[in-house]
Amino acid sequence: MANASTLPEAAPPVRGMTLSMMVAMAILGGWLFLALTGPLIAPHEPDAIDIMNMLSPPSAEHWFGTDQVGRDIFSRVLFASRVDLFLCVIGVLPPLLIGTTIGLLSGYFGGVVDSLFMRVYDLTVAFPFFVLVLAIVGVLGPGLVNFIIALTLVGWVSYARLVRAEVLTIRESEYIQAAKCLGYPPVAILTRHVLPNAIGPIIAYAVSDAVLVMLAGASFGFLGMGAQPPLAEWGVMIADGQAFVQQAWWICLFPGLAAISLGLGFAFLGDGLGQMQRRQATA
């Protein structure tokens, strides 16, 4: 047994949150609140057509103005936040779960599975990400469900690659050797010892991935390959407003600002998590 004084000191808990973290919490909490209470606070029905108030500029009645068929932009931005926020979660989770599982197995056991995975990885990164997802959605047919399927088919390899690299270093550590000697089955070692030690980088990557997923989702909505009109989604709304941008800039402006602010929330969260991890590493 090692002398207690030679054991590495446990990292002291990080005191206080970083500024990035607080900004992130405020933005993401705010959007979560708006998404959940959207139907209660929206001043108008998001799909209510009002021909008398087409393309009217922002006013006390319509805070963000109205679009080409008189729908209230503010209410639509609120309702769309439900779609886009949901998209961030549902677009990140399946690749994360599949990629983590395959990365764990591939890194821990090595052998044929591992070399097979590496070939799949090399092949997938040969394609520009956006093009491959776009082509798959094109063949499967436009829509949110197919967008998520395509995103999962392409996205899991990045998670698997990241987890595999983590596992390769963790695998050689003494506590894993000890767990093996004690006769723990591989499943227990992987879930109780390897995974908890690899989780930090996975979460950090997932947060930065959320920004990409949100932007991709909005881009696909914009291109007509994702969420389908008349569903209110920020990308779809911007596509709707594009033809009228000369007379009515507000149709495009506000959904874009909403997307940027949600993206900033995730970006600051990633930044804050990174800072905290670095602090822990240096503490």
Binding site: A218, S219, I238, I260, G263, L264, A267
Partner: peptide, 18 residues
């Protein structure tokens, strides 16, 4: 850089062309 990464490129394009 953080802010730049979160701007949807299609939105930026429309706004700049406007």
């Amino acid at each position: 850089g953080i802010a730049g990464l979160t701007i949807p490129v299609f939105w930026l394009g429309i706004m700049m062309s406007r």
